[in-house]
Nucleic acid binder design. Structure first.
Length: 239
DNA sequence: TCATTAAATTGTT
DNA sequence: AACAATTTAATGA
């Protein structure tokens, strides 16, 4: 039984560096910024810790400051289905926060991570008062819609190289995950979990992508060299 | 600061 | 799944 983060998490005030990594704060006016910035709490999540669980009432709108989370859900048979990874700069759960429902997914730390949370009440206050914030959320929802459509395509692909490439492209999305930058901190094992392939196969795919000069494999991470190529994958070799 | 050791990650079978 | 090779992180003088 994995422990619930909310029961033992160490909440603390965000540092200025952590605040600087929160994308939507930049679109706020001064009074809006001050009002929300000091409502933000951060906590350290260890691998396996739950940030939120299905069915729990929404308390915060969450974002990743550092590390890597995964979004998943369990079906009736008890099998876990992983939907997507959430790298730094990613904020999620607007839909449920908006409707004040309960969480529809489990969010779990894949590695040691720093997670920030904005109380739902403040989230709603921002929606009611800040045009910049509304733009941000709208843009976010729109971009995520595109991401999920792309994810459906990925699911139907049988070529592992393509699956890895497209999944990686999603993680490098600068709109959804502005904290990632050129280098995504992710191990090949973690990527294997997200894509649903063996680590060996992921390693093989990454080597192929590197040979195409699309990415560069580094220890504990991947450097993006050609994002459009990752997305379209013109190289797609015939299986 | 440097050298040693342990741990994590990768490459390969 | 197992193993060796490589890289990083941690430790202590």
């Amino acid at each position: 039984m994995t422990s619930d983060l909310t029961l033992h998490q160490r909440r603390r005030e965000p540092t200025s560096a952590e605040l600087a990594g929160i994308p939507w704060l930049k679109v706020l006016k001064l009074d809006e910024y001050e009002r929300s910035a000091n409502q933000i709490k951060v906590s350290d999540a260890l691998p396996g810790d739950y940030v939120c669980r299905v069915g729990r009432p929404v308390t915060y709108w969450f974002g990743v400051v550092e590390g890597l989370l995964k979004m998943s859900s369990d079906n009736e048979q008890g099998q876990t289905m992983t939907f997507t990874g959430v790298p730094p700069g990613g904020w999620f759960g607007e839909g449920t926060a908006l409707k004040r429902e309960s969480y529809r997914y489990n969010i779990q730390a894949l590695r040691k991570s720093i997670v920030a949370g904005l109380p739902v009440d403040t989230f709603h206050w921002l929606l009611d008062h800040s045009i910049g914030f509304n733009r941000f959320v709208m843009n976010q929802l729109n971009e995520r819609l595109a991401q999920f459509i792309a994810a459906r395509e990925i699911d139907r692909m049988h070529n592992p190289d393509l699956r890895v490439a497209r999944s990686l492209a999603a993680l490098f999305n600068p709109v959804l995950f502005p904290g990632v930058g050129d280098v995504l901190r992710i191990t090949q094992q973690e990527l294997a979990y997200l894509v649903g392939l063996s680590r060996q196969r992921v390693n093989e795919a990454l080597t192929a992508l590197e040979a195409q000069r699309t990415i560069q494999v580094e220890y504990g991470g991947l450097r993006i060299l050609d994002l459009p190529a990752l997305r379209s994958n013109a190289f797609a070799r015939v299986a």
